[in-house]
Nucleic acid binder design. Structure first.
Length: 572
RNA sequence: GCCCUCGUAGUGAAAUGGAUAUCACAACGGUCUUCGAAACCGUUAUUCCAGGUUCGAAUCCUGGCGUGGGCACCA
């Protein structure tokens, strides 16, 4: 519909003698300004010397010479806006469409999304949760846009930090405390503790650092065989299994893995092959560094290979890009990380672009999606690991809140059903709290306040969806069909009309907040409508028409929530 | 010190350079013997400061103040 009007305006402007290659049709902020609006008269009025309202007048006159059946009326308003009001039938036929998508950016493209990358010796914490929420959105946005999307994670399996953790675990074993003898949950905590203790130990005993370096050499060496190597391998296995379990509990999935150890090797090769006089990388103080161009004030010099000959994070990310493109050859490669890494990636990509060959295109196709921090304010939160709340602990605190608010409403459910529902509602609260804000912003999540459960919240959308499901069920029982009748469209139908366009904007620009805001609007309009109108009555025609509107509301909510990573149950 | 980010009611957020800045929470006042009150209706309240560009600025530019982050061998 938007395209139709766009073409119409463009053609008519051509007849008037204005070559308009930039016609924007938008949804007005206020429904009294019509269903679609254009500002072409303001934009081109000045260029042609006519006043905007005068030009708008001419435009409307010309359009009305050959009236289109889908337009009810056209008005000129404000400084010279041209507002289009759709005919009732046109609104209904848009809302009756089963499936339409206007998304073109991802169609038939191979897409790689890297998110939820764990450090295999640290438990999945609140930062990973944040990362997963954004990553899952990017994954689904590209999928619904027709992309062939592969998810990938980049676990950190080797580093001096991990070697320090292994050192501590070996020392524990000497004292008779075997980490492998603990229960699964305790193991995860113990690994995290060991990481922290290891770092602390060598901060206090810097003279013993050779011990950690020796272990580092062992864990880098895949062929080595020893007690140390064995412990490391077991820990890697256990942590990997834990990671997969958590990801699936979040309703997410990771298909592919590239380990940091692989990327490190590859990165090192690339850097070494491009080091020297007149090349991309240069030697400095025993290390190999990249120095950006003078005028790039936003970039900094970075070490790629340290003076001990090991690849740093920078080289590993360069190697990772190489592995991603050589293995998957994506058309678009997204990677989601905390926004603290923004300047790091700018440097890595800038260096990559200078490597020549395919690298220019690879850098073009690589998109860093940064996210902010989640600040969890709950009073009930206890952190088990040096101040950082664990993902599962955060979720269970939110589930507890859901349970309290549900009260007797879920009493009839079996305990398994109840658990599943509580998880779904809790995750909807968390996901909406994150995705309602622009990516990159920090999020304050407080399960003690109503912000995440009432009004603009995940549970509000789930409740509204369940309400529509219940109505459709009632309609079915009554033997009513679902079809639009001869009843004029109100604000709700006029809002529903725009779903596909909002979805396009939200997915192509990776702007989940646009979709969230829109879903709230639809839910509010529907709930307001519901409060003053009886949907199912003895009047068959009216009921069937209303049910058609309800069905469209349900579809929009269900589909929209899916893109956000949220499953909407029919009952709650 | 340099670079990046953000600054919108008491609080949390929204707004491709567009029309009267939107939504929620909190506060106050209403609505359940009828389709789900995790809901609905009403009241109060908002663009950090100073310049500039523009027909039009929360949005763009310059300067200032403030937040968060980064700045050589951690990831």
């Amino acid at each position: 519909m938007k395209e139709k009007i766009e073409i119409l305006v463009q053609e008519v402007l051509g007849v008037i003698g204005i070559e308009a290659n930039d016609v924007t049709i938008e949804r007005p902020g206020d429904s009294t300004h019509g269903d679609y609006s254009t500002n072409v008269a303001l934009v081109y009025g000045k260029k042609t010397g006519a006043s905007p309202r005068e030009l708008a007048g001419k435009l409307v006159e010309k359009i009305l010479e050959t009236p289109a059946d889908y337009i009810e009326k056209i008005e000129i308003a404000g400084a010279g806006f041209t507002n289009f009001f759709l005919a009732n039938e046109a609104i209904q036929s848009e809302n009756a469409k089963e499936e339409t998508t206007h998304i073109t950016k991802y169609t038939d493209k191979k897409i790689l999304v890297e998110h939820s990358s764990p450090n295999l010796f640290k438990p999945f914490h609140i930062g990973h949760l944040m990362n997963n929420i954004i990553g899952e959105f990017v994954t689904r946005a590209t999928k619904i846009g027709g992309g062939s999307t592969t998810t990938i994670s980049f676990p950190s399996d080797v580093s001096l930090g991990i070697a320090k953790a292994v050192f501590v675990l070996l020392e524990d074993k000497k004292e008779g405390k075997d980490v492998l003898a603990l229960s699964d949950d305790e193991k995860i905590i113990a690994f995290g503790e060991a990481y922290r203790r290891g770092v602390a130990y060598f901060d206090e005993h810097p003279d013993e650092i050779e011990k950690a370096k020796e272990i580092a050499r062992i864990i880098y060496d895949k062929k080595h065989q020893s007690e140390t190597r064995e412990l490391f391998e077991r820990a890697k296995e256990i942590n990997t299994a834990y990671f997969i379990k958590i990801i699936s509990e979040l309703g997410s999935a990771i298909q592919e893995t590239i380990y940091e150890s692989e990327a490190g090797e590859r990165g090192q090769e690339i850097v070494l092959a491009n080091t020297g006089e007149g090349k991309v990388f240069t030697k400095s103080e025993g290390a190999i560094v990249y120095v950006p161009d003078e005028e790039r004030k936003d970039l900094h010099t970075a070490v790629f290979i340290n003076s001990e000959g090991y690849p740093t994070y920078e080289a590993k990310d360069l190697g990772l890009i190489d592995l991603k493109f050589s293995k998957f050859n994506p058309d678009l490669s997204y990677f989601i990380t905390d926004s603290e890494q923004t300047s790091h990636f700018k440097v890595v990509l800038d260096a990559g672009a200078k490597l020549g060959g395919e690298w220019g295109a690879r850098v073009e196709k690589s998109v860093h999606v940064p996210h902010g921090r989640m600040l969890f304010k709950g009073q009930k939160m206890s952190s088990r690991l040096g101040g950082v709340p664990l993902a599962l602990d955060v979720i269970s605190v939110v589930e507890e809140e859901v349970r309290e608010r549900a009260g007797e409403k879920t009493a009839h459910l079996s305990s398994d059903e109840k658990k599943k529902l509580e998880r779904e509602i809790a995750l909807s609260a968390l996901r909406i709290a994150v995705l309602r804000a622009k990516p990159g912003m920090n999020i304050n999540f407080d399960p003690d306040s109503s912000l995440s459960f009432e009004g603009d919240s995940g549970p509000y959308l789930l409740y509204t969806h369940a309400r529509t499901a219940s109505l459709l069920e009632k309609g079915k029982e009554k033997g009513y069909e679902v079809k639009f009748g001869n009843i004029p469209a109100g604000d709700l139908e006029r809002a529903l009309l725009h779903y596909e366009l909002i979805l396009k904007e939200a997915t192509e620009n990776l702007a989940p907040q646009k979709l969230v805001t829109y879903l709230f609007e639809v839910a509010q309009l529907f709930n307001g409508f519901y409060a003053v109108n009886q949907i199912i009555t003895e009047n068959k025609e009216n009921s069937e028409h209303y049910l058609a509107v309800v069905k469209r509301v349900k579809t929009v909510l269900k589909d929209g929530l899916w893109v956000l990573g949220i499953s909407a149950p029919d009952k709650m």
